[in-house]
């Protein structure tokens, strides 16, 4: 399977924060979710991919080209949605189309206007009168109308209500039906990624701490709730993170199937991406 994005040993050092040795792929035909708490390095990674900031080390290949040497050609095939609307308030959405058709070779004005209609975005209203959700939908319409092969979305669903988020996620899933398309989406709203992502890359303090197929990860990990005495009997190799209170313990366990076989008397629930994140970020590390 061809990769839309290949990142190898990406490093960016700000002094107080370091994106450290980040390596992952975004295969064609898939949605890859970049998750992590605020400040984990998601936006820094995306900025490095788009060459908005200079990387200190590593390699980034976009649609088969180096992201700096082949920047222009690669960007013709990439649609971008950043974490905030970047269109001027004095513009109207139809103006945005007129501007971008002069920038993107493959710009599809008809499709753009269809999307404006679909998203209920009035073409002649000034953007200063748009809500945040409307602005975000406009950014997504603009990204899609460029007829890209790759969509890069940085917190594109942040701050939106669940109905708009659902509508937008459906649009993304539609896009990725084509095997020659791919999406990299960063978000700390993991429920969105549970719906849309095929693969998940979890960044924590600038490092990739977990990555893999989303369904496999959700199968692999489990949430153990038990007393302290029971926890003491568990082989620490199973435990990823533990949170202890006065009366009970909660732990994230890996290799859930094997764990259940070895400890049939203990209850292990399914986990969400949110729980995996919280346990990894906040749970005591078990050595």
């Amino acid at each position: 399977m061809e990769n839309a994005i290949e990142i190898r040993h990406l490093t960016k050092d700000y002094g107080s924060f370091k994106l450290d040795d980040v390596t992952f792929d975004v295969p064609m035909g898939t949605v890859v979710g970049l998750i992590g708490e605020n400040g984990a390095g998601k936006s820094t990674t995306i900025k490095c991919i788009l060459n908005l900031i200079r990387r200190d080390g590593g390699e980034i290949v976009l649609l088969g080209r180096d992201n700096i040497a082949g920047e222009r050609e690669a960007k013709e095939e990439i649609g971008v949605v950043l974490d905030e609307s970047t269109f001027h308030d004095t513009l109207r959405s139809l103006d945005v189309g007129k501007i971008l058709r002069k920038i993107y070779k493959n710009w599809d004005q008809r499709f753009f206007e269809q999307l404006l209609k679909k998203f209920d975005l009035p073409g002649k209203k000034l953007l200063k009168d748009y809500s945040r959700g409307m602005k975000m939908k406009l950014s997504i319409a603009a990204a899609l109308a460029a007829r890209p092969r790759l969509l890069i979305l940085d917190e594109a669903t942040g701050g939106l209500d669940p109905v708009v988020r659902d509508e937008i996620l459906d649009q993304f899933l539609d896009f990725v039906q084509d095997e020659d398309h791919a999406i990299l989406i960063s978000s700390h709203i993991t429920s969105d990624l549970e719906k849309a992502a095929d693969y998940v890359v979890y960044l924590h303090k600038g490092r990739v701490v977990l990555q893999g197929a989303k369904d496999e990860l959700l199968e692999e990990y489990g949430r153990l709730v038990c007393g302290q005495a029971d926890l003491g009997r568990v082989d620490p190799a199973f435990l990823v993170g533990v949170r202890e209170s006065q009366f009970s313990c909660e732990a994230l366990v890996r290799d859930r199937e094997k764990f259940v076989r070895l400890y049939p008397e203990l209850t292990v629930d399914r986990v969400t991406l949110d729980e995996i994140m919280v346990f990894t970020a906040k749970g005591d590390v078990v050595s």
């Binding site: 788009l50 060459n51 908005l52 960007k75 905030e84 970047t86 269109f87 001027h88 920038i103």
Partner: peptide, 16 residues
């Protein structure tokens, strides 16, 4: 452009 943070977006387009 500064107010809209346009440059961040524009640099991510083919215009660069």
């Amino acid at each position: 452009d500064d107010l809209a943070r346009w440059n961040k977006y524009a640099a991510a387009t083919p215009a660069g």
